[in-house]
Design a binder for these strands. Structure first.
Length: 375
RNA sequence: GCGCCAUUGGUGAAGUGGUUAACACGCUGGUUUGUGGCACCAGUAUGCAAGGGUUCGAUCCCCUUAUGACGCC
């Protein structure tokens, strides 16, 4: 089995769906949030802690693992699951996103054949192609491989986005051709920026090639507005098959996840919960809070009242603030646990709302509370 | 007791007779969306030990006092 998606229910007032993803490592409910473990580790968390927050699929990154330790070494160690000891599904990003940001001269460095760029570690010249990316992912032995795509900012010109998505389509075909891991699913990526016709075209053409799942890429980038992002989803979703997973890449603001689900997205990934955790911030129902703030110096309450995560069950804000302000790594760890659990709990609540046909009411209530403490 | 040197923000400290007293840390906020970069951005001494004097003008020159370090009896 590679991966199968089964739709359980469609919310009657929105595009939101309830579904199940069947993988080699079990069956998981959608909507789902996937924590990011770029370098074969969700920064600072052990696999046990990931199971504990009910994480399903997690992400790893082709580019990073290609550079260090190298795909051959991961393969020699028995593949990504054995390597990082994660007994759950793993999705590998293709490296397109990283490579695009590392390519200095977009015109020159991004060619039909692939992308030239310099390693962020030692500056050596590297060249990544769709074939190479898939080959690496085959070796890493993740459960889901992503097509190698170009990820231009939403602010790129219409012409650029059009040419770029055409090339991404050709790359998708090339990648699929060399994809050779029978235990691994392969996803295609829809591009096209904020433009309706481009998204539609990209979605239809990507579906024609035929993948095990489809993602919407090129969002939450650069200076893209929320409106553009929501439009990009709306313009793409109608052309994606009902019986395949829909993955919105890189989105992790709670409200964006809700809006994505409403528009028919099944899975999300984002670095936000772990990154902001390391900088001392936490998601709560009442909005994002910053544990660096002096007002938490003597606060004996948990990060979020009523949260069921390990951190909230055992620690006070004052202690976590102490860890964060003194630079102790445990602070970021505890907040990462909370933030990931927060987003996963959010998806659990979304599933419940979809089940009850109350998603829009849930959204309105969530936003009202989430923004209540903001000025 | 005498001589000599010092005294700049929460800290370590630069600095000049003339509009806004450098920098760093700390502190106070903020940012972060398919994680190169535990990072980035912003604010943070109406005052330069205290008092007096010289000067158009002093944190910077002079005097006194206080405090501290060093040397000599």
């Amino acid at each position: 089995m590679k991966i199968e998606y089964e739709k359980i229910k469609q919310e009657s007032h929105t595009q939101a769906r309830l579904g199940k993803i069947k993988t080699n490592y079990g069956v998981y409910d959608t909507p789902m949030f996937m924590p990011v473990g770029t370098r074969a580790t969700v920064k600072s968390l052990s696999p046990e802690e990931l199971y504990d927050v009910s994480s399903g699929i997690i992400l790893a990154n082709t580019y990073h693992l290609w550079l260090r330790p190298g795909a051959d070494i991961v393969e020699k160690c028995g593949g990504l699951h054995r390597f990082m000891n994660y007994q759950g599904p793993i999705l590998t990003d293709s490296g397109g996103y990283q490579v695009f940001s590392l390519a200095k001269n977009k015109e020159k460095d991004i060619t039909e054949e692939g992308v030239h760029f310099k390693s962020h570690i030692d500056g050596q010249n590297l060249f990544l192609t769709p074939e190479k990316s898939i080959e690496i992912q085959n070796k890493l032995d993740s459960d889901i491989a992503m097509s190698f795509d170009e990820c231009p900012p939403a602010s790129a010109s219409y012409e650029y986005l059009k040419n770029s998505l055409e090339r991404t389509l050709r790359w998708a075909k090339r990648g699929k051709k060399v994809h050779a891991n029978p235990n691994q699913a392969l996803f295609g990526i829809v591009q096209g920026g904020p433009y309706e016709d481009l998204r539609k075209y990209s979605a239809m053409e990507t579906v024609k090639i035929g993948f095990d799942g489809y993602s919407i890429g090129g969002v939450a980038n650069d200076d893209e507005s929320k409106e553009d992002m929501y439009h990009a989803i709306e313009y793409s979703i109608p052309y994606l098959p009902e019986d395949k997973v829909r993955y919105l890449m890189g989105v992790g603001e709670p409200i964006d996840i809700i809006e994505g689900v409403i528009r028919g997205v099944d899975i999300f990934d984002c670095v936000l919960p772990t990154r902001i955790a390391r900088h001392g911030q936490a998601f709560t129902k009442n909005g994002k809070i910053n544990l660096n703030n002096a007002k938490y110096k003597e606060d004996v309450s948990p990060v979020e009242e009523g949260c069921d995560c390990y951190t909230c069950k055992h620690y006070q804000k004052a202690y976590i603030r102490h860890l964060i302000t003194t630079g102790e790594v445990l602070g970021g760890r505890l907040l990462s646990i909370h933030n990931i659990r927060f987003l996963i709990r959010l998806t659990e609540e979304l599933r419940e709302a979809i089940q009850k046909d109350q998603l829009l009411a849930y959204r309105d209530q969530f936003i009202k509370q989430y923004q209540s403490e903001k000025k």
